[in-house]
Simulated scan of single mutants.
Amino acid sequence: MSTDKKIRIWFNRSFAVGYHYIQAVRNNEDGLQFEIYGSHRDPEHVSLLSCDYTEVEPVLTGDEYAEYCLDFCRRHEIEVFVPRWGMRYVVAAAEQFAQMGVKLVCCTDAQLLDEIEDKGNFFRSADEQQLMVVPEYEVVHTAEQFKAAYERIEAKGLRVCFKPTRMEGGVGFRVINNESDPLEDLFSTVSARVTFDHVYRTLSSVETFPELMVMELLEGPEYSIDCLASPEGELLAAIPRRKNGGRSRLLEHNEELLAIAARVASFYRIPYNYNLQLIYQGDTPKALEINPRMSGGLHMSCLTGINFPYLAVKMALGYPVEVQQPEYGLLTTYVEQPLVMQREHTEQPQA
């Protein structure tokens, strides 16, 4: 498959782990050659160190950001675009990218993205289709709704937490803990714990607020399942990655979770790389969220012998990719790697 022609590929604004994913594409097992373009608002962002060409992104959102992306592809004759930031805006312009001949390595079904990126919509869908067990939850947007949801869930003997329905990672996540000591909290590390009274008083200061999901706190082992699927949604690989304390992650052959991944793939048919998050409550894995993109820990799942970022790009280019055979049972971790970003060229003192 090796070719002398370099394929022009663009990775837009991403997290620091984008450095690893770009390197995975560059150092692919097929010897396919890429000219790699990267952009970010921060001109010193680490992900840009792995690119051949870099550009500082303007501060834009919505249609304006989509226009910037289209213009970037025109100016640099980009053939493959791997969007991370602003994916929703990019997908809204998917037809224009297709007309330019640009392959998008992401889910281009805007309706599906809306369904799964909103945690409330995802929980409803997953429950209705019996894809997995969802936690006790309610979606609220007034203080009184919040109070009723909290009391209902707590009455079942469950601890309660809440988070926005449309945020990534742990942004806005809080755990209700009425036994917290304000003075102790002040002198300890920053915590997600808050009292019900404090939250209720704050929410009562406005008539309505952006949707919050009030739900049972899941307290067992937490798993991320990194998935690779064909453009038609066929599941080609799934790696259950268990948080094992500290930075260690166990890449585990878990039949229960692999069956969930298979059901999710069959129903949603999300292409390329995506990630499921579940937490056990007792013996039952319960849904947390689904992310239609490369996860922050995908580089550890690549240790199973599957080059997740590259295989997604390979499929977008039209090459066949077979069902993968990962090596499970790996206990993994990660370390920081020092990198030189720039050298100042100064004259050395004479001996």
Rank of each mutant, 00 (worst) to 15 (best):
D4I: 15
K5G: 13
I7H: 08
R8E: 08
N12L: 08
S14W: 10
A16K: 13
A16L: 11
G18L: 11
H20D: 13
I22V: 12
V25F: 11
R26A: 13
N27T: 13
G31W: 13
L32G: 08
E35M: 15
G38F: 02
D42L: 04
S50R: 04
S50P: 05
D52C: 04
T54M: 10
E55A: 01
E55P: 03
V56C: 07
E64G: 04
A66G: 03
E67G: 07
D71E: 10
F72L: 08
F72M: 09
R75H: 14
H76C: 09
V80D: 08
M87V: 08
Y89L: 06
A94M: 08
E95R: 11
Q96M: 14
F97H: 02
F97N: 01
A98H: 14
K103G: 07
K103M: 11
L104F: 07
V105A: 08
L112V: 12
D114M: 09
E117L: 08
F122R: 02
E128G: 11
E128S: 14
Q130C: 11
E136C: 00
E136H: 02
E144T: 15
A149L: 06
Y150R: 04
E151S: 10
L158N: 03
C161L: 13
T165K: 06
T165F: 06
G170L: 11
V171L: 13
V171C: 09
V171K: 14
F173A: 07
F173E: 05
F173K: 07
V175K: 10
V175M: 12
N178L: 09
L186E: 01
S188F: 14
V190T: 14
S191W: 11
L203Q: 04
S204K: 10
S204Y: 06
E216D: 10
L218C: 05
G220I: 00
G220N: 01
P221F: 04
S224F: 01
A229E: 01
P231K: 01
P231H: 00
E234L: 07
L235A: 01
L236N: 02
L236R: 04
A237N: 01
A238Q: 04
K243V: 14
G245N: 10
R247Y: 15
H253M: 11
N254L: 08
E255T: 14
E256N: 02
L258H: 05
L258A: 04
I260T: 02
A262K: 12
A262H: 09
R269D: 00
N275A: 03
D283Q: 04
E289T: 00
I290Y: 01
I290S: 03
P292R: 02
C302D: 03
Y310C: 02
V313C: 06
K314H: 10
M315I: 07
L317K: 06
G318L: 05
P320L: 05
V321R: 06
Q324V: 10
Q325V: 07
P326D: 00
P326Y: 01
E327Y: 11
Y328S: 08
Y334I: 09
V335F: 15
E336L: 15
Q337N: 13
Q342H: 15
R343E: 15
P349C: 07
Q350M: 15
